[in-house]
Amino acid sequence: MTRLVVDAVKDAGVDKQDIQSLVFTLPRPYTRQKYFHTFLMGQLRLSCRGNVMEVMGNGMTAALAFDQACNDIMLGRSEVSLALGINMESAVSAAEHMMSSMRTTGDVDFHTSAGFTPIAWYAMDAMRYMHEHGATREELCSVAVKNRFHASMNPLAQYRKPVTLEEVVQQRPIVEPLGLYDVPPRGDGAACLVLASEDVARELGRPYVLVKGRGFFHDGSHQISDVPNDMIAFESARQAASVAYEQAGISAKDVDVAELYAPCTIVEVLVSEAIGLIPKGHGARAAFNGETRLGGHIPISTSGGLTSRGHPAYVTSLYNYVELAEQLRGRAGERQVKNAQFGLATGELGNYNAAMIHVMEAKQ
C-alpha cells in the first residue's frame, strides 16, 4: 500500500505536503492490523488537516471512498485528496468468506439459513432475463469471452489467458444458469488514486481527468426487495445515471468507454441497459455481436471487468476509476479506446438496490 501511494503521488506530480485528505476503504474484518488508516499514516509520516477516515458500504465501499475524497475537495477541506484501500480475501478460506458474505448481504433469519448466496441473486436475474428477452446461455457467456480478451492486454488483470465461447459454456455450474467463468474470482488487491481541485490539476500542466457528473440512488431495500417489482430493471442504476448525465451535460450516447461494477456476466448486461448504453433486452445480444468489445459501438469493461480483471470487493470500484484514468489520459496501451472523451463508472451496493455513477471527462 505504501508503495502504491508513493507511485500514485509521483505519477500525479503533486508534493507530499499537498495531501490534506485520505479516505480509505475499510479493510476486511479479519485484517490483523486494526485502524489500518492511521497505521498507514504513520508509515507514510503524513499529517493532514482535512480528513483521515475509513468508509464502508459493502460493494460500494470503494466508490464511497472516491466520492468522499471528492467531497473534501469541493468543501474546501483539501486541495489534494487520496482515495485508497486494500483487500486481502486470501487471508481466510472460501467457506469462511462465504459464511460472512451471506450474513452481510442477506436477511439472517431467511436468506442465510437457506444458504442464499449473492451469486444466487444474479442467477435469478439471469433466468428472468432469458425468460423475458429470449437471451441464450451463449449470449451471456460472450460477456465473459469479451472481458477475458480485454484482460489479456491488462497487466493488472488476475486472469489473462483468452478463452473461447465453447470453453465458457462448458465450465461447471456455480448457480444455474451461471458457470464458473460467469462469476468473479476471489481476489486480493490495492489501489490509490490522487484527486485534486481543477486549479491544481491545470497548474500541473499534464493531462488529467475531470469528475464531470455524479449520481446516486437507493431504492430502500436490503439487497433483494420484498416488494414485488421488475427485478431486472435495475431502477437505482437508471435513476443514478440520469442525475449523473444531467450534471455532466451529456447523454448515454456520448459515453465512449464504461467500467461497470458487474460481478457476473448478467449484471454487466442489465447495468448496460439500465444506464442507457444498450437498448433494453439487447445487452446480451450486443455482447455476442461484438458491440461492447474494443472497437465496438460502446467498449465496456476494457480492464477485463470483475470476471477477469478480478474482484477484490472492497477496492473494486477504485480499479474501475484507475481504468478510466488510463483510458481518458490515453495511457491504456493495446486496449486504448481511440479518442475517448467521456468515461462512466458504476458502483453497486447489492444487486443494484443502490447505485453510484460517476461521469468523467478527458482534459488536456
Rank of each mutant, 00 (worst) to 15 (best):
V80Q: 09
F116T: 03
A63L: 04
A63K: 05
E79I: 06
S81P: 09
A114E: 11
S100L: 15
N58W: 04
L46H: 04
A126K: 06
S78E: 03
A91R: 12
S93T: 10
G134H: 06
I86Y: 10
V92E: 14
F110K: 06
C48Q: 05
Q43G: 03
T112N: 08
N87A: 11
S90W: 08
Y129P: 03
S47I: 06
L64T: 00
W121K: 09
M99T: 10
L44S: 00
F66S: 02
L64C: 01
T112I: 06
C48E: 07
N71P: 02
A123I: 05
L64P: 00
T112P: 08
I73N: 05
F66C: 03
M99P: 00
R128C: 09
V108S: 06
R77G: 07
H131P: 06
S78H: 05
D107A: 05
M98C: 09
M99D: 14
D107S: 07
N71Y: 08
N51E: 12
L82T: 01
S113A: 12
E79Q: 15
M98T: 14
S78T: 04
L46M: 14
M74T: 13
A95W: 10
A63C: 07
T105F: 15
T117V: 12
G115W: 06
R49S: 10
Q43K: 14
R128K: 11
G59Y: 00
A126I: 07
A120R: 04
A65L: 08
M127G: 15
D109W: 11
G106A: 13
A62N: 03
S101E: 12
L64I: 05
N71A: 11
L84E: 02
G134R: 01
I119T: 15
Q43F: 04
G134C: 07
H131C: 09
H131S: 12
M53P: 02
G106D: 09
A65I: 04
S81L: 04
F66E: 01
P118A: 06
I86V: 15
V52T: 08
G76S: 08
T104V: 14
L82A: 02
G134K: 07
M53N: 06
N71M: 13
E54P: 04
R77H: 12
R49L: 09
D109V: 05
S90Y: 01
Y129T: 00
F116N: 09
V92Y: 02
A69G: 08
Y122P: 03
V55L: 02
M102D: 05
R77C: 07
R128D: 12
I119N: 09
I86M: 15
V108M: 05
A83H: 03
D67M: 13
I86E: 13
E132Y: 10
V55C: 12
C48F: 10
G50F: 03
M99S: 12
M53G: 01
S113I: 14
V55Q: 01
V108C: 01
R77L: 14
N51T: 05
T104W: 11
A69P: 07
M88E: 13
V108I: 13
F116W: 14
L82D: 02
D67R: 13
